[in-house]
Design a protein around this nucleic acid. Sequence first.
DNA 1: ACCTGAACACCGTTCAAGT
DNA 2: ACCTGAACACCGTTCAAGT
Lengths: 243, 243
Amino acid sequence: MAMSAEQESADQEPAGRDLDEPGTGGAGGRVTVTAMPARRTPRGTLSRQVLLDSAREIVDIGGVNALSMRALGARLGVDPTAIYRHFQNKNELLDALADQMIRGEEPLPATGDPAADLRDSLRQLRRQLLRYPTLAPSVLRQPPGTGSWWDRMEHAVGALRATGRSAAEAAAAWQTLLFFVVGHSLVEARHLAENLAADRVGAPMPTVNPSRSRYPELAAVAPYLHADLDDQFEAGLDRLLGA
Amino acid sequence: MAMSAEQESADQEPAGRDLDEPGTGGAGGRVTVTAMPARRTPRGTLSRQVLLDSAREIVDIGGVNALSMRALGARLGVDPTAIYRHFQNKNELLDALADQMIRGEEPLPATGDPAADLRDSLRQLRRQLLRYPTLAPSVLRQPPGTGSWWDRMEHAVGALRATGRSAAEAAAAWQTLLFFVVGHSLVEARHLAENLAADRVGAPMPTVNPSRSRYPELAAVAPYLHADLDDQFEAGLDRLLGA
DNA sequence: ACCTGAACACCGTTCAAGT
DNA sequence: ACCTGAACACCGTTCAAGT
């Protein structure tokens, strides 16, 4: 990741960062990631990679809403419209960002134990989404079966077949697993993003505490709901892979 | 629902509606949902319900990006800032919209066959998300265990227990099922939204056709991947509920 | 070839003013 | 009590111009 250390100079604003999709006007919580030494990037050094790295830093510090063409330009000491030499528009930039998030930086696990490798690769994907909580919903930009998904899919399907599953079984298992991991991670990511925005970190998911009269079933089951999200995730994998 | 029929007067613009999160400037594809008879809403008739209904119409016609405070005001013949009497801000409006999407309009199935009712309720949830493809990601605004989820959860957990599962089993099964349904539906919804934006409807998901040399596992498994998303969804439920 | 600057058509939100 | 209008501080993107 290599995030610049200078991020915490804007400590004056008490509120956290923006969480929600649209522009979010003047009210509290705007963090201007832009404010930087703003070393003017010399001509010819702008490139997709340079832009993507800066964009990821902005997202890391201020969330995806802090990422505007203007903020990105400012961070690099460059006119915002210069970005359009390298990306057709902001959507293309977000696509590329999503692709990098899916790919990640760690190699896919290859210990020789296919069952363990499969689980690890799914944990890896989850970790990757939780690392950029506000960017996580952008995974949906890359439909499974395109871009960075291919390598993950090849790896997972290979592992499934290596555990003795037929091609048909492996195909079906992969599709179900993937949707579970995506669903789980997106719900978690949203929760994480909300906590980051409110500057409380590590808050647990709201405990289900239903009124026994209105929600008798829920009340009966509440003690068994996994409070810990790691446990919940692993239990889901157990269920889908056959513990 | 009850969407006004007058939507297709803005037929001049060839391109579809906006898909992507941010404002999306001048380029093709902007549909102004605003253009309406703009009957001036008389004083005192503005309410949360009126605003939500109009907002849903805008989302239905132009996608979630067409929903701006200004557009909503214009649709009702009202100053945009009047909305702030009824919702603190746009996020609160989107929360309420998400809540209505999760709740839906059909009652939860209650045929007496708990296994069938459970599956039906999950299909219902999926349908509800696919009905507003661009709004679908907003389900993440309501974390499971809040708002409209409670009734769905009560219903599902009740059904699971009625099929003989223990409380612990029912809790674990529900959590896994929910994440699968959410993941599946969000991926589908994105695909749907993209097709609507491009004015091609009913296009299938991109077929996985990997090069046999780079992706041998994928190639072996490709024929078994469900091309049809309904089948894929049902297969996932089979897997999670024990066919 | 690559970047700049001004401009266009939008945003969400606040606040003083009107009825 | 409820709505309006002007204003503020933003957006993404285009296009002619500069170096």
